[in-house]
Amino acid sequence: MLELKGIKKTYLLGNSVWGKRKTVEAVKNVSLTLEERVCLGLVGKSGSGKSTLGKIILGLEKPDQGEVWFQGKNLSNLKAKELKELRRNLQVVFQDCYSSVNPRLTIGEIIAEPLRNYERLTSVQEKKKVQELLEIVGLCTEDIHKYPYQFSGGQLQRINIARAIALKPKLIIFDEAVSALDVLVQVQILNLLAQLKEEFHLSYLFISHDLQAVNYIADRLAVMYNGEIVEWLDDMEQLERLEHPVSKKLLSSVLLPYPGHGSDTKMIY
């Protein structure tokens, strides 16, 4: 459904007028495929290029090289109209739930925004649809008139999810979507995502630095380091078999919630 072919992205650093500007290769030659109804976990340290890759898939950044194929079409040479039609199937949820909503819109307006862009609904239909979506993500239908500041982070993330699924997309990209939440709320959201994936036959690209969360939800795993995918895992059951040093380091830095576990890793120096 989604295929990346040799994606490359370089950022220019600084704004020096003289001399050569420094560059950073955020993504170097990444290729990957994502099948339908699969959740691919993309893990890596901060600065490894995970988010850049997500932005390229969404079309928020243009790759310097390589192609993004989505539903059999190359995103880079589509006409604006075709692109718009294709994009309804591609949604995103970001880490910072507060900055991803307009603070001056009501929840109803926030969730209705994608609907207004793509579907012509009467105001009654729209309200009904928004209420349905709120119920799906586990919020009250009365919340429709409230404003973002009246919600906690976890609730707001549910609203972002409701907005993302409003158009029944095929692929949702989660960029650290649960990293800022409490552990309890994290589990709630992850359970919700797993349930939505089954119900609406969604595919996920789940970007995170947290191997625990990724392991909980993903079907397949890609480990990124320095702009490259250094290891693939098709079966999450075999997490212990990760071989690349970067993957091993990520694995060993998972803080297991059992006391005493730390004591053997305590104080290496």
Binding site: G138, V183, L184, Q186, V187, Q188, L190, N191, A194, L211, Q212, A213, N215, Y216, I217, M236, E237, L239, V254, L256, P257, Y258
Partner: peptide, 22 residues
């Protein structure tokens, strides 16, 4: 107990659905 049950650790969701309070 709820807190401790909600720890994911490295369990897979298929083997153990973590309970949550809503």
């Amino acid at each position: 107990r709820v807190l401790l049950e909600s720890r994911i650790g490295l369990t897979r969701r298929k083997t153990k659905i973590v309970k949550h309070i809503s």
